[in-house]
């Protein structure tokens, strides 16, 4: 194809998206569209998979059967979300193995928030409330994104995500209505998860390299800073109900804008964690790679069994 023909195709393609038409896997698409989607969708899937690890830590130590069942279900949902997203991503021509390879070698990133440790039970509350809360704000606009398989996967993810946030908030509520020690535990979790949750919504607009193109392709509907403001505005009143204090001395309601002004985010910390120097980066990757490698014999055995059964079937037929 000549450059002129490609340019023409690109114009038709952009016009389709502008008309809110969906792009399906076998449709022609610019190489950059394919690559950007593979990057974003696979990293989204990786985040779900790695996101199971900090919470998995507490399944055996949940304080009651009710909490344990809920946490198990939540972690299982995250596995499911990872699988929806991996298979949606595979429709763009990348194999599951390649994606795992990218995750395990550190070539592909996952959400930086999962590189923080979960040291008390209250962290299960804070993660559900704040981390899943921020994730919902990020994910809801994606239900309308231009790539069909991604949009469909996100509809399913968003439907399930609301339970995650509510169960987290309920844990916080219970702790805040408990003993002074329990309330202190909840406050401590909020103190540790507040800033990483704000960072989770991505670098400031001035620093964000992908925003403009992503807006065009409806991979993004609002900028990182807008999403962050939305998250803060909806979360502060929820903290008030819990009787907890947001760990930001500069946080103040602004009558003029109708939003909360907030303090400076420590972006150095964010980039450190992204670059692999967060408190738990190594631990997470070790657990993930270990699970994959130690599971190899199970995958091989299942395949060998399937092949044997297939041969038996063929013998019977002939």
């Amino acid at each position: 194809m000549s450059d002129k023909e490609i340019k023409n195709l690109e114009e038709i393609f952009e016009a389709r998206i502008a008309r809110d038409e969906k792009i399906e896997p076998k449709d022609w698409m610019p190489e950059k569209y394919r690559k950007t989607h593979i990057r974003q969708m696979s990293q989204h899937a990786h985040s779900e998979i790695v996101g199971m690890l900090p919470e998995g830590n507490w399944i055996t130590r949940a304080p009651s059967l009710r909490r344990k069942a809920a946490l198990l279900a939540k972690v299982q949902d995250e596995a499911g979300h990872g699988l929806y997203l991996y298979s949606a991503c595979e429709t763009l021509g990348i194999s599951r193995d390649e994606m795992y390879e990218q995750l395990h070698t550190g070539k592909a990133k996952y959400s930086s928030i999962f590189n923080y440790p979960t040291v008390t039970w209250a962290d299960m509350g804070a993660i559900g409330w704040l981390v899943d809360g921020a994730a919902i704000i990020n994910q809801v606009p994606l239900c309308n994104t231009s790539f069909g398989p991604y949009a469909r996967a996100m509809v399913r993810v968003c439907k399930e995500e609301s339970f995650h946030q509510r169960q987290g908030y309920e844990i916080m509520l219970k702790l805040c209505n408990g003993t002074p020690e329990q309330k202190e535990m909840a406050q401590d979790a909020l103190n540790r998860w507040w800033w990483p949750s704000l960072m989770m919504l991505g670098p400031t607009d001035a620093e964000s390299i992908h925003t403009e193109q992503s807006m065009k392709w409806k991979l993004k509907r609002k900028s990182n800073d807008e999403l962050r403001q939305q998250f803060i505005d909806q979360t502060v009143p929820q903290a008030d109900i819990l009787g907890l204090t947001i760990p930001d001395p500069d946080l103040k309601f602004n009558e003029e804008t109708g939003s909360y002004d907030f303090g400076e985010i420590d972006w150095d910390e964010f980039w450190q964690v992204v670059k692999g120097h967060g408190p738990s980066n190594k631990k997470r990757m070790k657990a993930r790679v270990g699970a994959w490698e130690e599971g190899a014999w199970v995958r091989d055995a299942a395949m060998a069994y399937a092949e044997k059964q297939e041969k038996k079937k063929l013998k019977k037929v002939s």
């Binding site: 929806y84 298979s87 949606a88 595979e90 995958r299 091989d300 299942a302 059964q309």
Partner: peptide, 29 residues
Amino acid sequence: SKNWPLWEIFVRSKNGLEHRHFGSLHAAD
């Protein structure tokens, strides 16, 4: 290590409705 093949999944949500494509997954058989 042979990779598990990919399968397409169709689900009938309730009797009276058709099976609809839900997504895909990998499995040995």
